[in-house]
């Protein structure tokens, strides 16, 4: 795969300056950070996880709503966090907490990217569920893949203001030059949403594997062959092809052949992958039902 950029590589603003321009920059709630730390600890108790989530009332309410969605099909309504952890398990509650903690800003419209309300959340759920599906096929960690996939496009939230009103011109630039959308972003802004998203994840002290998965999901060879970047990359391809949460960023998307090998999937079975992906995201929509 070619290096991601060769078109007019000219950073205009440092990433920090771009982030400063973004009003209401997303913040990962402290409760979610604590949950991520605890679920990586095999000694953590269900009580400790429940206490960590319980520190944030808004997140708590969303976690309970998600746990009671038909996606999980629990036999009875869960009314306490501790019960949710016992019935669904640590790792599942971690995923639910991530969705709950990101829901508010993931459902905002991104005018710059031509994404109506909830479309970034849909696309991000597509990346999360797609990466989880690919990880299962490749026998990697599906929960890790879900979390990294969910956050892969957070950089779009920060860039959105910067490209507001420019998307049509950016698309024309990409079409004329045969450029990927990342190339266009770098030409116009000097940075890509992947780089900015990785910077945000670093600021949140997320595990380095997740940071690198976000940074390299469009160009996974740059990750030094992290399976996570390859899994998110393939999930992104599937989400793009099916238009799942698709905004203005279609254009040329370069599929890294090595991702297929590393994740043990066959390009010849592309239709089968697309069918599986659609099944996963349609099932996943049940998770967000009733979330307003």
């Amino acid at each position: 795969m070619q290096p991601a950029v060769s078109h007019g590589d000219r950073p205009r603003l440092p990433i920090q300056a771009i982030l400063r321009q973004t009003q209401d920059l997303p913040v990962l709630p402290g409760a979610i950070m604590r949950v991520i730390q605890l679920t990586g600890n095999s000694d953590a108790t269900s009580r400790a996880i429940a206490d960590a989530i319980g520190m944030d009332q808004a997140v708590t309410a969303k976690v309970l709503r998600l746990a009671n969605s038909s996606f999980y099909g629990l036999p009875r309504k869960v009314t306490s966090l501790q019960e949710a952890v016992i019935l669904l398990g640590f790792r599942t509650v971690r995923l639910i907490a991530m969705v709950a903690g990101t829901f508010t800003w993931m459902t905002r419209p991104l005018k710059g990217y031509d994404l109506p309300p909830r479309q970034l959340m849909r696309h991000s759920m597509g990346l999360a569920l797609g990466a989880q599906m690919i990880a299962r096929i490749g026998q990697f960690d599906p929960e890790e893949a879900f979390v990294a996939g969910l956050l892969a496009d957070i950089g779009k939230i920060a860039i959105d203001n910067c490209i507001d009103g420019k998307i049509s011109l950016m698309m024309q630039l990409g079409i004329k030059g045969g450029m990927t959308f990342e190339d266009v972003e770098r030409t116009v802004l000097g940075h890509t949403h992947s780089e900015i998203g990785a910077h945000m994840a670093e600021n949140w002290n997320l595990p380095q594997e997740i940071v690198e998965g976000i940074r390299w999901h469009h160009n996974p060879l740059g990750s030094g062959n992290s399976w996570l970047a390859h899994a998110i990359h393939l999930a992104d391809v599937l989400a793009m092809v099916t238009g799942y949460g698709l905004g203005g960023d279609g254009l040329q998307y370069q599929l890294c052949e090595e991702s297929l090998e590393i994740c043990r999937v066959s390009a010849e079975d592309f239709d089968g992958l697309v069918e599986q992906f659609v099944g996963a995201v349609l099932h996943g929509e049940a998770l967000l039902e009733g979330m307003g």
């Binding site: 279609g250 998307y253 890294c256 052949e257 390009a267 010849e268 592309f270 239709d271």
Partner: peptide, 14 residues
């Protein structure tokens, strides 16, 4: 059709 192999090779499945 916006997905292409990075190598530029053709693959009808895509």
């Amino acid at each position: 059709d916006f997905v292409h192999l990075a190598s530029g090779a053709s693959l009808p499945a895509l």
